[in-house]
């Protein structure tokens, strides 16, 4: 089977729906949670033949409590900083044992990736172990109650930036991973399951370390109505704030959904994205300008590397 081209803009056929057999109903996610949405897409690619390595994060809870389990795949819960390291060990043990049809996936939040897990992620990437590392980015420590992470965007309210909002921009982890020289880096969004699916398909065929930075709007932490998870995710693309791309063969390949927004005139005003979310309530014009500047710079960087 060839991987669908994520850049194609033809109408999508539905994803294979064996995913309901792997991501079972009855998890412990909040309404509108992006996590099970992403798992369904992942399971459409790997079925039961995957081992998810999950550090401390919302997903540790979403899977469900013992003896229950909402995923019909293998799951290993691990310490907060250790997803990439444990996955390294599993991946090497499988290689030693000659098991080649099972995908090792480190599935970690932004805190477990951009902050406490950064060293183990960097180590595993540099060693180029065969795994897919997916950072699902809900842009704060949600599991512990919406504290700021280095991946929280500028201006956002969190419980540890309660009055002024975050005063620094988001750490760009995909960029950091590109600089590691790993064979595959991609950004994705839960609002674009076909795009995410195609990227997983491509990653599946590549041996070595693959990194996917998955934008994952969280209704609880971002303060929006749970029915808007996908809408918020789409607006992030349509405003140009989140850019979907793949990086391989030494350059960036812009993904279909983000293509139109290379042209700044086609982008929706950033406020469209911000105003749906309580975490940006009362944000000043000045701060919105600052976000715009950041977005433009990010686009320039992407264009330079295409």
């Amino acid at each position: 089977m060839t991987a669908p081209n994520p850049q194609s803009s033809k109408p999508r056929s539905p994803l294979p729906f064996n995913m309901r057999e792997v991501v079972l109903p009855g998890d412990s996610a909040c309404p509108g949670c992006p996590i099970p949405m992403a798992w369904k897409v992942i399971s459409a690619v790997f079925g039961e033949k995957m081992i998810l390595v999950i550090p401390a994060c919302c997903s540790s809870v979403v899977v469900g409590a013992y003896p229950g389990n909402s995923l019909k795949a293998s799951v290993v819960h691990v310490a907060f900083a250790s997803a990439a390291a444990v996955a390294s060990g599993i991946s090497e043990a499988l290689r030693k044992r000659g098991i080649t049809d099972v995908q090792v996936i480190a599935w970690a939040g932004d805190g477990g990736t951009a902050d406490i897990g950064m060293a183990s992620l960097s180590g595993a990437a540099e060693r180029n172990h065969d795994m897919i590392y997916i950072m699902y980015d809900n842009e704060a420590y949600m599991n512990t109650g919406i504290q700021r992470s280095s991946s929280t965007p500028y201006g956002a309210w969190t419980t540890t930036t309660p009055i002024i909002g975050k005063t620094e921009h988001k750490k760009d982890v995909a960029k950091i991973m590109i600089s590691h020289g790993v064979p595959y880096v991609a950004t994705a969004s839960i609002a674009y399951p076909h795009d995410f699916y195609a990227k997983l398909q491509r990653a599946k065929k590549i041996r070595g370390f693959k990194f996917i930075h998955l934008h994952a709007p969280c209704p609880v932490g971002w303060r929006f109505d749970p029915k808007y998870t996908v809408r918020v995710g789409k607006l992030a693309i349509e405003t140009g704030l989140w850019i979907l791309y793949e990086y391989y063969d030494g350059k960036i390949h812009l993904s279909g959904p983000s293509r139109p927004y290379m042209d700044p005139k086609k982008r929706k005003p950033i406020i469209e994205y911000l105003k749906l979310q309580g975490r940006f309530k009362g944000i000043t014009e000045e701060k919105i300008k600052e976000i715009e500047t950041y977005v433009n710079q990010h686009w320039e960087w992407v264009k330079r590397h295409m």
Binding site: L71, S74, V75, R97, D101
Partner: peptide
């Protein structure tokens, strides 16, 4: 090792 679904360490 992925041969059968198994979870370790659930809440």
């Amino acid at each position: 090792d992925g041969r059968e679904p198994l979870a370790l360490g659930n809440l």
